[in-house]
């Protein structure tokens, strides 16, 4: 499904990803774990299409289609969804209006009909309940005055609503309490499907207690230094990243 080959990415003239290769087949959840500064967020931003992240070499394809030649909004329409580590607050933009505009923009790019206001209202209320965001929160400006946990719930709401094909979760577990972690696990597990892939980026094992990965990859110094089964996450929890940093 998602295939990354020898990816090199520079940010502000500094090379951060240095030949990263990774493949996530459809229907699988892969975890990428790594220490601070290893390039995890660079990977997620690059996959989602941030323009100031310069791809100097390598390829990224989704179902055989070159992702790198698409703008961020086109990738979203193709079904790429990034759950941000630090979701933005957008003052002056009503939450429901923003999400409906986004949903309809994706649908329009795909040549699909727009969702009516009434259908959307029903849909967002249903997903709001699923992630624990009240109607009152949905009426506020987007993420304004939300706690870190509420912002992550808003990311999960969009994930549940957009139903993307490929999901990148950038440290979604950071700043979450146990109940919220459980909610994230429930949303992701409910969306697991044979035609959908997940790349779950995290520092810690704890999110993986709720989302069981099929494969775990260790990212250090800009490349994948080891891949293995779910047991690799448990091993990391015990031994830490030191050995991998040295090896990188």
């Amino acid at each position: 499904m998602l295939k990354i080959e020898d990816l090199h990415v520079a940010v502000g003239g500094h090379e951060i990803l240095k030949g990263l290769s990774l493949e996530v087949p459809a229907g699988e959840v892969h975890a990428v774990m790594g220490p601070n500064g290893s390039g995890k967020s660079t990977l997620s931003f690059t996959l989602a299409g941030r323009e100031d992240y310069e791809v100097t070499a390598g390829d990224v394809t989704l179902e055989g289609e070159n992702l790198l030649q698409l703008a961020a909004n086109e990738r979203a329409a193709k079904g790429v969804f990034l759950s941000f580590q630090n979701p933005m607050e957008i003052p002056g933009v009503a939450t429901m209006n923003f999400i409906r505009t986004a949903l309809n923009a994706q649908r329009k790019t795909r040549g699909e009909e727009e969702v009516s206001a009434a259908d959307f209202l029903k849909l967002i209320r249903e997903k709001g309940k699923l992630v624990g965001l009240s109607d009152e929160k949905l009426k506020r400006p987007f993420n304004v005055g939300f706690s870190g946990g509420e912002k992550k719930r808003m990311e999960m709401l969009q994930l549940a609503l957009f139903q993307p094909r490929f999901v990148i979760m950038d440290e979604t577990d950071s700043g979450l309490d146990i109940d919220a972690l459980k909610m994230v696990g429930e949303v992701v597990n409910s969306l697991r499907a044979p035609d959908r892939g997940f790349l779950v980026i995290t520092h810690y094992q704890r999110l993986l207690d709720y989302i069981k990965p099929d494969r775990v990859h260790i990212l250090a110094a800009g490349r994948i230094v080891k891949s293995g089964g779910p047991e690799l996450a448990a091993e990391l929890e015990k031994s830490g990243y030191d050995q991998f940093i040295k090896a990188a």
Binding site: A71, A76, A77, T101, A102, A105
Partner: peptide, 21 residues
Amino acid sequence: FYIKSRGLDDAAARALLTEAF
């Protein structure tokens, strides 16, 4: 970038933020 990653093109994202401002 956040807005564009949700599906709005560059012009629409700029217009949304300017309108909010």
